[in-house]
C-alpha cells in the first residue's frame, strides 16, 4: 500500500498532540508502518501548529508536503484554510467550525476572512465542517474537541470501532475516558 497522509492542524494548546498519539497507536495496531511528526517548543504558545501522521507498508519521510494530505483534520477553520495547499486532489478535510482570532486580527492588523468553509468548498475541496466545541461541551468537556474530530474522522476509515476505542483507552486517562467516548460518538454521528 502506498503511504497515506493525515495532517492535524490547529492552534497551540488545543490538544492536537493527543489526537496524533491516538491515531498513531490505532494505525500501528492495524499492522501499518507509522510515523508521527510533532511540533514542540515556541509555536505551542498559541501559534499555528501542525502534526503529521503517515502510514503504509514502509514510511520514509516523517513530514507531509504540499499536495500530499489524504486527510486534513483541523481544530479551527482558519487553520484548515492555511494548510489547504497540502490537501491532495480528492483529499478530505474534517474541520471544527470554531474561530479563534490570531493576534494580528486582535490587534486590527489583519481581518479574519469570512465564510471560509464555503470558499474551501468552492475551490473544489471536500470539506466536512462541524461544530466540535458544542459537541465537546455536550460530552462534558470543552477540551474534548480533539476526540470529537477523531470520531468524525473515523467515518472515513474502514477500521472497526473497537480498535478506535482500544486506542482511546490506551491514551486517555481513565477518569476522562467516559466523557471522551461520548465525545467520539457525538463526533461520529454529527452531520
Amino acid at each position: 500500500m502506498d503511504t497515506k497522509n493525515i495532517m492535524i492542524v490547529g492552534v497551540g494548546g488545543q490538544g492536537s498532540l493527543l489526537a496524533s498519539k491516538i491515531l498513531g497507536h490505532l494505525l500501528l495496531s492495524q499492522g501499518y508502518d507509522v510515523k508521527v511528526s510533532e511540533v514542540h517548543g515556541m509555536s505551542q504558545r498559541g501559534g499555528s501548529v501542525v502534526t503529521y501522521v503517515r502510514y503504509g507498508d514502509k514510511v520514509y519521510s516523517p513530514v507531509i508536503d504540499k499536495g500530499e494530505a489524504d486527510y486534513i483534520v483541523s481544530f479551527e477553520i482558519l487553520e484548515a484554510a492555511r494548510w489547504l495547499s497540502y490537501l491532495k486532489k480528492d483529499g478530505q478535510i474534517v474541520t471544527n467550525t470554531q474561530q479563534i482570532d490570531p493576534m494580528p486580527v486582535i490587534t486590527g492588523a489583519a481581518e479574519y476572512p469570512s465564510d471560509l468553509a464555503d470558499k474551501i468548498k468552492s475551490a473544489g475541496a471536500k470539506i466536512d465542517a462541524i461544530d466540535c466545541l458544542s459537541a465537546a461541551k455536550e460530552a462534558g468537556s470543552a477540551k474534548a474537541v480533539n476526540i470529537v474530530l477523531l470520531g468524525r474522522l473515523s467515518h472515513y476509515f474502514d477500521i472497526p470501532e473497537e480498535a478506535w476505542m482500544a486506542s482511546l483507552e490506551a491514551n486517555v486517562p481513565a477518569k476522562f475516558l467516559e466523557k471522551n467516548k461520548k465525545a467520539f460518538e457525538l463526533g461520529k454521528h454529527s452531520a
Binding site: R45, G46, K88, Y112, P113, A123, G124
Partner: peptide, 20 residues
C-alpha cells in the same frame, strides 16, 4: 514534478505564537 493542492483567494492572517 510535485503535486499541487487547493487554494483560495483570501489572504490568510498569520498566527504567530503569543504569551498565554
Amino acid at each position: 514534478e510535485v503535486a499541487e493542492g487547493y487554494s483560495i483567494e483570501d489572504e490568510i492572517p498569520g498566527r504567530p505564537p503569543v504569551m498565554c
